[in-house]
Amino acid sequence: MSLYAYPEPNSLLHKNLKLEQHFEGGYFVQTEILSGEVPSPYAEGASRPMGTQIYYLLDPNSPWGRMHMNRSATFHVHHCGRSEYTLIYPPTGDSPARVEYHVMGANSELGEVKQLFAPSNVWKASRIPVADLAHAKEGGGDRERIGCLISEVVVPGWVMEDHAFLTKEKLLELFAGDEEKAKPFLEIVKPLAERSGP
């Protein structure tokens, strides 16, 4: 039994969209880069493409997107499936780091969202919900129809120089050295090869 509407199986999404492995985890293909460049207000005025767009897929073979930051703002638009997003806003002034959780999906009655905005310089990670992966593993669902396909639009456009992974040291710094507060996020900070679970 399917957990949610998933019109095309993952194998067809990979084939038809020509997806490639993403270095953060998951799969992607760049579908648009706007011609022309603009000075980025998020990168000290450095020149950047006006905007970029990708498809991004998580599936049971690559269910994580490692915690990272983009200096540009990112708009996420849901197409099918379901994924959990964790956003960590760095501390500012007297305010401590703030954590937000969102589920991108089609069921608004459950609080799932079809759009998600990640501002500049906010840490972000994504994953297929553990319960969804367990459902497929236990034979309750088709692995070909478990995952999440979205589009990401980055403004100004994405460049490698504006990307950073969150390290354990930086994670502790975000929470003022409090290991208990940092502990829930240690798994999504690890490189993909070092993770212990799905």
Score class of each variant (00 low, 15 high):
103 V>S: 05
175 F>W: 07
113 V>D: 04
97 A>F: 09
149 L>P: 03
156 P>H: 09
108 S>M: 07
165 F>G: 03
95 S>V: 13
164 A>T: 10
74 T>V: 15
130 V>E: 12
101 Y>R: 14
129 P>G: 03
82 R>W: 01
163 H>Y: 13
84 E>F: 08
114 K>L: 05
154 V>T: 14
77 V>H: 14
142 D>E: 00
163 H>V: 09
94 D>A: 13
181 K>V: 07
104 M>Y: 02
179 E>A: 15
119 P>C: 03
103 V>E: 02
136 A>I: 00
139 G>F: 03
72 S>Q: 08
175 F>K: 01
140 G>N: 09
71 R>T: 13
130 V>F: 08
141 G>Q: 04
90 P>W: 04
144 E>G: 13
83 S>K: 15
127 R>S: 11
181 K>R: 15
151 S>Q: 10
150 I>E: 03
71 R>A: 14
160 M>T: 15
123 W>I: 03
161 E>D: 15
157 G>I: 10
76 H>S: 12
180 E>A: 14
131 A>P: 00
111 G>T: 08
107 N>E: 12
112 E>V: 06
70 N>K: 00
168 K>F: 09
70 N>W: 01
159 V>E: 15
107 N>W: 02
166 L>H: 06
113 V>A: 08
159 V>Q: 14
88 I>Q: 03
162 D>R: 04
152 E>F: 06
136 A>T: 06
126 S>I: 00
125 A>N: 06
149 L>F: 05
79 H>P: 09
88 I>S: 06
124 K>E: 04
113 V>W: 06
149 L>K: 01
89 Y>M: 01
181 K>Y: 02
90 P>F: 03
165 F>P: 07
113 V>I: 10
141 G>S: 11
154 V>S: 06
87 L>Y: 09
172 L>I: 07
93 G>D: 08
139 G>Y: 03
182 A>P: 10
122 V>E: 04
78 H>Q: 00
132 D>M: 02
166 L>D: 05
74 T>K: 13
78 H>E: 02
166 L>M: 14
110 L>S: 12
131 A>R: 01
178 D>T: 08
116 L>N: 04
159 V>R: 12
81 G>P: 04
161 E>V: 11
119 P>E: 01
104 M>F: 04
77 V>G: 11
157 G>F: 08
159 V>N: 11
137 K>S: 10
90 P>M: 08
83 S>V: 02
151 S>M: 02
170 K>Y: 08
73 A>T: 13
96 P>N: 11
168 K>V: 12
